[in-house]
Design a protein around this nucleic acid. Structure first.
Length: 903
RNA sequence: GGGCAGUUGGCGCAGCGGUAGCGCGUCCGCUUCACACGCGGAAGGUCACAGGUUCAAAUCCUGUACUGCCCACCA
């Protein structure tokens, strides 16, 4: 005997192994089949599986499994991302904690080796977790953004863009993370509102006059001021423009200039211009040819400033400067101010705008085709509302800073000759005394040689002493090539030909620009094809109250814990039930128990059917023709459910698919069909009913398999002998088709009557506490014979479902004594309850009914009196309203007469 | 400052032109021979607000108010 409750743990372990051993998820380049391809958003090799992964990968898994069952050659490509700064930070922390060492203690080579060891250790551990989740990834070939093939792709891209002059090196103000000690691109910078201060400072006139008062949030940068700017329209300062003022504490004279960028209303209307430490100021500086002076270095320490502050941390210097200004009487005002602080998306420390020479990618030519693809709808977003932000972002693109001053990543494939690039290269000795190239300056004469491997000699001077650029590429550079590189691009491999472009990208909206936009651009640039046609943006899994899950808040739900506790299917299904495209998912253990209960319901329904199969041998064939109402009806319900379930998959609305199948199985199949079947099991019909049960259940398992693969596979295994299938795995079966010939509005209507009457009787039973064991007598009456047809024909259904002994059906039946009454549509229902009636209760119930019926009558009558309604509304609608009016009138009459009788 | 999304019973959400549905929770009754991770029943909502379009609006349009997110060089 099977256990009463489904126990997923053992089953899931067994099946996950079985699937992998059978290579169930492998795909071939089968020219006779349509490919369906999803390339996984490669998880960083930094950490463990979280709810976000669980959602994102479950969605992909459902799509892959569904399309495979649709008969397509479905491939889900696995891989991991080296994760640039994020991974380097993790390893640096680990190193500090375990060995009290910095990466500089190890030296570059040794450090990179350490990260590779980490990858060997943890890279595959990620996929062990993935396998446990039952995700249908073909794990025979796992890609990594830093492996050899992917490195070739990165080089090819770099080379081609260099030759096309998309890639260039330039000196400009970039975003610098002092903590990570690297440049960042614009989108890697986050803007947070911080409670800060706005200081009003006086810059005295060079001539000893009062000068001008400016407002700033960054007093420590005054030493780098190049000018004071005012708005040219500002009457207050008109006569000051052109004059010079003295920088406080630095005693250096700078001019007052006029520039449109200055907001007259803000602060004092005067702005200090510090081109080296602020993006706006940098632009102003360029317009006015101002000198650029740097006072904060790459470590966040003060340089080129009055001696007192030299070497100070920028934060300390700010405090000191304010203090000294106050003492000098030049601090006029200090006010609280919330300013937007730029922070690093990896470590959240404050970003310094920093002058430096970096590698960039010119974006305009790359963006244009991507904009077009989105605008024409060739590229589809789900939900579509992301199209506009996507296009707008591309239209306002700044050039992409791709060089990072870290060690972990694809090293820039550019070499320099120490002979002829002498002046452009800066070296420093590391802890081991080894000489390291630290900086490259094209301005100072470094001559680039683009090459994957170290060139044999310098093409300019034939020197042999060549060194590689010290920087690595932005991690998103290799990610942007991912949909191509996973198939072996730049080589035109068979995989590339067959599987590229992929079908759908499933990812979170938080990396739409960082990743998605760039894949679209590279894909179009190198192949002329979009890397995917559909972009499905899933939401974020939040906690029950809508808060983002985070370790510091302590509201994290660990998918592996939940899986261990409730089973993988439960975790998957709970996410899918809420997976509306683009919407965040509030998540709690409660939603998992609901899904777990569903899996259990499915399991128990199956258990019941299997129990009744005892004594039946071999496969039962699906009956050619069914005539019994319950059978016709359940086939109608099934066809309808499949239609909707398929629509859900097609439109990426998996919540629709999950909910539809949930309610079909539970409400229609279990609560009505099986309940009705119980009686029929006792009759000669048994085998026919069993055949239907078995086949509908098996089809339902197929339909649910992409969503909850384990429990469905487990049940299917036991069911197979009775179905007559040769497939070992559900995944190799065909997804149920919507059989339109099963649609049956008539059966639907009849069952609605039976269910309606049943419900009324059950309500009466419950209302008057009729013990479940006590059989009752029921009378159903109507004015016309035709209205009674259904009830008459299916008396047995109602008797069974309401525990009624004697059911009398007839025209204008006399009302029995001491009876509870109810109406359903054109039917009147009497349940005589001698001795059981609570008159007070019944009176209250009837009064309520009268109120409701009256309200209904009023509104329907009003509508039916409106000429415009009768003129414009479709006939169907008018008939419906008339029907409702009649039903309400009957209900009112019945309730009134019953109430009368009670008196 | 700009843009996007949301506002539906106690909570979390579907619905998106024909006067409201689900899950959880609550209350009542059931160990009925698949399932108490269950069965049957009940209570509970003028669908944020104000206009408009329409025979008909939770559903379409306009505005308002909150809430959340994204983008942005007011120091």
């Amino acid at each position: 005997m099977l256990p009463k409750a489904y126990e997923p743990q053992e089953v899931e372990k067994k099946l996950a192994e079985k699937w992998q051993n059978a290579h169930l998820f492998a795909a071939k380049t089968d020219k006779n089949k349509k490919p369906f391809v999803i390339v996984i958003p490669p998880p960083n090799i930094t950490g463990v599986l979280h709810m976000g992964h669980a959602l994102n990968n479950t969605l992909q898994d459902v799509l892959i499994r569904s399309h495979r069952m649709f008969g397509e050659e479905a491939l889900w490509v696995p891989g991991t991302d080296h994760g640039g700064i994020a991974t380097q930070n993790v390893i640096e922390k680990k190193l500090a904690k375990e060995q009290h060492k910095s990466r500089h203690d190890l030296g570059r080579e040794e450090f990179v080796k350490t990260v590779w060891n980490w990858y060997d250790e943890c890279g595959n551990a990620i996929f062990t977790q993935f396998r446990k989740m039952g995700w249908a990834l073909d794990l025979s070939d796992i890609r990594f953004t830093m492996d050899e093939k992917r490195a070739q792709a990165v080089f090819e891209c770099f080379k081609q863009w260099w030759e096309k002059k998309y890639i260039y090196r330039g000196k400009r103000l970039i975003n610098w993370c002092v903590r990570c000690s690297t440049a960042l691109s614009d989108i890697e910078v986050e803007h947070e509102q911080h409670a800060g201060k706005l200081w009003h400072l006086r810059y005295k006139g060079e001539d000893g006059s009062e000068g001008i008062i400016i407002a700033t949030t960054r007093p420590e940068t005054i030493y780098a001021d190049a000018a004071i700017a005012v708005n040219p329209k500002d009457e207050r300062f008109k006569n000051l423009v052109g004059k010079k003022v003295i920088i406080p504490l630095a005693n250096r004279a700078i001019p007052i200039i006029a520039d449109e960028a200055v907001e007259m209303e803000f602060g004092t209307g005067a702005l200090k211009i510090t081109p080296a430490h602020d993006a706006t100021d940098y632009e102003v500086g360029k317009r006015h040819n101002l000198p650029i002076m740097t006072v904060i270095n790459d470590k966040g320490k003060m340089i080129n400033c009055p001696e007192k502050y030299l070497g100070m941390d920028r934060e300390v210097c700010r405090k000191e400067t304010v203090k000294d200004l106050e003492e000098a009487g030049l601090l006029i005002k200090e006010e609280k101010y919330n300013n937007a602080v730029s922070t690093c998306y990896r470590c959240h420390s404050a970003i310094e705008p920093f002058m430096s020479e970096q590698w960039f990618v010119k974006m305009d030519k790359l963006a244009a085709p991507a904009i077009k693809a989105a605008e024409t709808g060739e590229l589809q977003f789900h939900p579509a509302s992301w199209k506009t932000p996507f296009v707008n972002w591309l239209k306002n693109l700044q050039d992409w800073c791709i060089s990072r001053q870290i060690w972990w990543g694809h090293r820039i494939p550019v070499w320099y000759c120490r002979e002829c690039s002498k002046n452009g290269l800066t070296f420093a000795k590391d802890q081991q005394g080894k000489e390291q190239l630290t900086k490259v300056s094209f301005e100072d004469g470094a001559k680039p040689i683009v090459s994957f491997n170290k060139p044999a000699q310098c093409p300019h001077c034939h020197g042999h002493d060549l060194v590689q650029d010290p920087d690595v590429l932005d991690t998103w550079f290799s990610s942007s090539l991912w949909p191509m590189s996973v198939f072996g691009w730049p080589e035109n491999t068979p995989d590339m030909q067959y599987f590229y472009p992929s079908s759908t990208l499933v990812t979170g909206y938080e990396i739409l620009y960082l990743w998605v936009a760039r894949m679209v651009m590279t894909g179009l640039d190198f192949t002329g094809k979009l890397p995917f046609k559909d972009v499905y943006l899933n939401g974020i899994v939040r906690d029950k109250s809508g808060q983002k899950m985070s370790k510091s808040k302590g509201n994290v739900i660990d998918p592996l814990d939940m899986t261990a506790k409730y089973g993988t299917d439960a975790v998957r299904f709970s996410l899918l039930m809420q997976a509306v495209p683009g919407k965040d998912i509030p998540y709690s253990e409660d939603s998992i128990t609901g899904a777990r209960n569903f899996c259990n319901k499915l399991y128990n329904a199956s258990r019941f059917i299997l129990m009744n199969m005892q004594g039946i041998n071999g496969p039962l064939s699906m009956p050619e023709k069914v005539t019994e109402l319950a059978d016709v009806w359940i086939l109608d319900r099934f066809a309808t459910a499949i239609k909707t379930a398929r629509e859900g998959i097609k439109n990426y609305n998996l919540a629709l698919t999950a909910n539809t199948l949930y309610h079909f199985l539970w409400d229609d199949f279990c609560d009505w069909y099986i309940e009705l079947a119980k009686q029929r099991f006792q009759t000669a019909e048994k085998e026919k009913v069993m055949a239907l049960c078995v086949h509908i259940l098996y089809e339902t398992l197929k339909a649910l398999h992409p969503l909850i693969p384990f429990v469905t596979e487990e049940i299917a295994t036991s069911l197979k002998p009775f179905v007559g299938t040769t497939e070992e795995f559900l995944l190799n079966e065909k997804y149920p088709e919507c059989n339109a010939s099963w649609f049956n509005a008539d059966a639907q209507a009849k069952m609605t009557v039976i269910q309606g009457v049943t419900k009324e009787i059950r309500t009466i039973r419950a209302q008057f506490n009729v013990p479940p064991t006590l059989k009752i007598t029921t009378v159903v009456s109507a004015k016309n014979e035709a209205d009674l047809d259904t009830v008459k024909s299916y008396e047995d259904y109602i008797k069974l479902m309401t525990k009624t002994d004697t059911l009398t059906v007839g025209i204008n039946q006399a009302k029995p004594r001491q009876t509870a009454t109810a109406t359903f549509d054109k039917l009147t229902i009497y349940v005589p309850l001698t001795g059981l009636i609570d008159f007070d209760k019944e009176r209250k119930r009837l009064e309520k009914e009268i109120t409701l019926a009256n309200a209904n009558i009023v509104s329907r009558e009003a509508r039916l009196k409106q000429e415009n309604f009768l003129k414009h509304a479709p006939q169907e609608q008018i008939d419906k309203t008339r029907g409702e009016l009649a039903a309400a009138q009957l209900a009112l009459a019945q309730a009134q007469s019953s109430l009368e009788d009670l008196k």
